[in-house]
Design a protein around this nucleic acid. Structure first.
Lengths: 178, 178
DNA sequence: CAGCTATAGTTGAGCTGTCAACTACTTCCT
DNA sequence: AGGAAGTAGTTGACAGCTCAACTATAGCTG
């Protein structure tokens, strides 16, 4: 009921689309859960933390400003802040004052952090190979890359357009009424 | 350093693979976050809860045994238990004694639950269309389905082989030592 | 039928993520 | 210079997930 009432109605998924959607959703979930489990078992950290360490390890002086790190990972500042706090507790990252901008903070990877990453990397890469790359043909991987890049670009650009509404009245606190 | 030492060394990702992996990871994350956000905004529930409701709505009498529901969704019993508890609080699902097996529990979708699902569905489907189906060509979608089904099947079967180790000594508690 | 063992489901602690405030600094504009 | 608005980052409450432990029932086997 209420399939195609009047105002163009919801564009329901047909059988094939349903099938694609469910397969994609499930495969993606199982894949991520697998990577998380493997990484948790071998390194004791979630995939997002691994990525943070990865970016830091590639950066000059293994140092990045919090906001750059957040932008590179497309993570919210809040998420990054919590994550870095956790990594700091573990002694894998250290925070430093950002010279020239006293609001800023630098995340600096420690030697222990680098060692931990080096130790975690091989089994993580093996996991990614085993469950993803080894399962697909070169053509399928090309297709997957193409599709992923396309979807990513779409989402990244649509992300930029979604936020502004708040910015307009963000600072409208309770003081300075007029 | 330590690229190809002796014991076959880690099979690092080459440039193209790295690119594919990062694109896939990011696209997938952004996509899921988008669906979660949309669903949260329009229906106030996470995607997993939506799926639970979806399966229940398709089941005879809108009723499924907890374990069947968990199996269908490839969710852990724990996860399902917590989720159904929450859905019960909202009045969208009700638990019943399973006739014939006193261990069992049935999850029954309430009329309010069904109404909530019906109300949430259109915007969710729109979101999936907008960010996934509308972005890809028919050929790309075919490829995505093929790849997803393949990865899913691999993971599902490798899942069955990964657990048994526990089963052997699962009941080894602290009592009955000899 | 006694006793393992397996199955069904729940529970609680701990962790990561989101969202919405909040502080503090900087930049721009007049 | 002075004040509004933007930017950087943190924090705390809360929600969902995982894991391990637990209860309770079922089923198998000698």
């Amino acid at each position: 009921m209420a399939e195609n009432t009047q105002n163009q109605g919801p564009r329901w998924l047909n059988h094939d689309e349903q099938r694609t959607w469910r397969a994609y959703l499930l495969a993606t979930r199982l894949l991520m859960e697998q990577f998380e489990r493997d990484l948790q078992a071998h390194a004791g950290i979630p995939l997002t933390y691994y990525e943070i360490l990865g970016r830091l390890s590639e950066a000059p002086d293994r140092t990045l400003r919090m906001s750059h790190l957040a932008d590179e990972l497309f993570a919210s500042r809040s998420r990054l802040s919590h994550a870095v706090a956790r990594l700091e507790e573990m002694g894998w990252v250290r925070r430093e004052q950002c010279p020239g901008d006293r609001r800023g903070a630098l995340a600096v990877m420690t030697d222990e952090g680098f060692a931990a990453l080096e130790q975690a990397a091989p089994s993580h890469v093996e996991s990614v190979r085993r469950h993803l790359f080894d399962q697909l043909t070169a053509a399928q991987l090309d297709g997957l890359r193409e599709v992923s890049e396309h979807l990513r670009d779409h989402l990244v650009s649509s992300l930029g357009l979604a936020c502004p509404p708040d910015a307009a009245d963000a600072t409208r606190s309770s003081d300075t009424p007029s």
